[in-house]
Design a binder for these strands. Structure first.
Lengths: 86, 86
DNA sequence: ATATTATTTAGATATTTATCTAAATAACTA
DNA sequence: TAGTTATTTAGATAAATATCTAAATAATAT
């Protein structure tokens, strides 16, 4: 959970997740969507990957990233648990 | 949302929320539950308050903190929206 | 083999953050 | 009014983080 909260605590990374929600994208495409250097985006992708919220697959020269929403179940549970009073 | 994600991105602060889920507590009680100085806990409480996830009310000498789960709705929505594919 | 394209790794830097101690504010009590 | 208790504010510091440029790795194409 630590890694997941950390991953989500960044505007850029959350925007990446929102983009990957609609379609898989390669690293270059993702980087092009931001005014941030490719290495920085690569670092953000790594943090998202460590949290288990995205995965990557090589397709030729490209590394294609996909969202992985399974891990978000834990987060949903944690939040809903907080809402159950007493 | 930024402040909320920031607030949740800390083990101590998440533990505070879990405690406040069960009952309202004053600052001293909260601080006593951790091996961290009172000023540090005060700072954590401030961050949680800025995020709108807790509120405080003075009762005599004491400041009593309560959880505010309303703000968590936004978070739930954001996560569930990510899960809706395409 | 060499060049080109895609992406990451390495190393550096400025900002943010979690923590501490000491001092300040606020409320109660004798 | 003084003293005590509860909590925060101020100021300092070490660790974590987001970013950059330059170099390295990986795959493709000529």
């Amino acid at each position: 959970m630590n890694l997941l909260f950390k991953a989500l605590n960044d505007e850029t990374r959350r925007a990446i997740l929102e983009m990957l929600r609609d379609r898989d994208m390669n690293a270059g495409e993702i980087a092009d969507a931001f005014d941030i250097s490719k290495p920085s985006i690569s670092h953000h992708l790594d943090i998202l990957k460590q949290a288990g919220v995205i995965s990557s697959e090589r397709r030729g020269q490209f590394l294609v990233y996909s969202i992985n929403t399974t891990i978000l179940e834990d987060l949903l549970q944690w939040i809903m648990n907080l809402k159950e009073n007493k």
